[in-house]
């Protein structure tokens, strides 16, 4: 079943035409990695999917919610599509457990004990059970990003959007975050991952999209994209990063 429909998506920042007609359908349980040079519009594409960026023209449908319809409650869409940011964006004044519990308590109006039990379960799942009572400022980058993943999962999203989740991390701790993401993919989460981790894309993705200058230039299985890219721009990009 297709859960994300993006059709002829255009996004302009003033005179800057960032997305020039992106089309993309993503099925339930599919893991899609978006790669491409910086400035190609990957992050903007992702941020359009939960309304962090408004759409200039075209349409996006997420779980039957039309994002280009002003009557759509964007907060409902965001509860169903969790997001993980490059710079983690943990709430510095809240303990790790409270970071994870905040949205369930305030948005989903969950019962406190249930929210706590769930937060504990999620933190254990990302390997941070012993850091529950710590403040984010005392964590390493990799730990912060794993908390951010647990925080997004606490709302039971049906889709997870990852915006360069490992780009701000030291190379030696990228792996711990990718492991958590791999587990999530294996559990059947629908994931859209903007990434520069070609190894991860190759191993975990069902489909890889290569974006350049505001368009999806080429897409296919990791094998097709990485082993036999057809487009010259894909070939040029991969020869630089691989």
């Amino acid at each position: 079943m297709t859960v994300i429909f993006v059709e002829n998506l255009n996004k302009k920042f003033g005179p800057n035409h960032v997305l020039k007609g992106v089309d993309c359908h993503i099925r339930e349980r599919e893991v899609v990695c978006v790669i491409g040079p910086s400035g190609s519009g990957k992050s903007t594409f992702l941020r359009c999917m939960n309304g962090l960026e408004s759409i200039t023209s075209g349409s996006i449908v997420i779980n039957k919610h039309r994002l280009d319809d002003s009557k759509t409650n964007i907060n409902l869409v965001r509860q169903e599509a969790g997001m993980v940011f490059q710079h983690f964006n943990l709430f510095p004044h809240l303990k790790v457990i409270d970071n994870v519990m905040l949205a369930p308590l305030k948005v989903a109006k969950a019962n406190k004990d249930e929210a706590r039990a769930k937060a504990e379960m999620l933190l254990a799942k990302v390997g941070l059970a012993e850091k529950m009572e710590a403040f984010p400022g005392s964590l390493s980058g990799g730990q912060m990003q794993r908390v951010a993943i647990a925080r997004a999962l606490a709302m039971d999203p049906k889709i997870m959007l990852f915006d360069e989740p490992t780009s701000a991390l030291d190379p030696e701790i990228v792996g711990e975050v990718l492991t958590v993401m791999k587990d999530l993919a294996n559990e059947g989460m629908t994931m859209v991952v903007v990434t520069h981790e070609m190894g991860f894309a190759r191993e975990v993705a069902d489909r890889v999209l290569f974006m350049d200058q505001g368009l999806i230039v080429e897409e296919g299985s990791p094998d097709e994209i990485f082993s036999s890219p057809r487009n010259a721009r894909t070939q040029g990009f991969l020869s630089k990063v691989l």
């Binding site: 939960n50 309304g51 962090l52 907060n75 409902l76 965001r78 509860q79 969790g82 997001m83 940011f85 710079h87 964006n89 943990l90 709430f91 510095p92 905040l102 949205a103 305030k106 948005v107 951010a148 925080r151 997004a152 709302m155």
Partner: peptide
């Protein structure tokens, strides 16, 4: 206050 904190709140569906 870093803009990212507001965005994280938005992305969680907060008003």
């Amino acid at each position: 206050v870093p803009h990212g904190l507001r965005e994280a709140g938005k992305a969680l569906g907060m008003k």
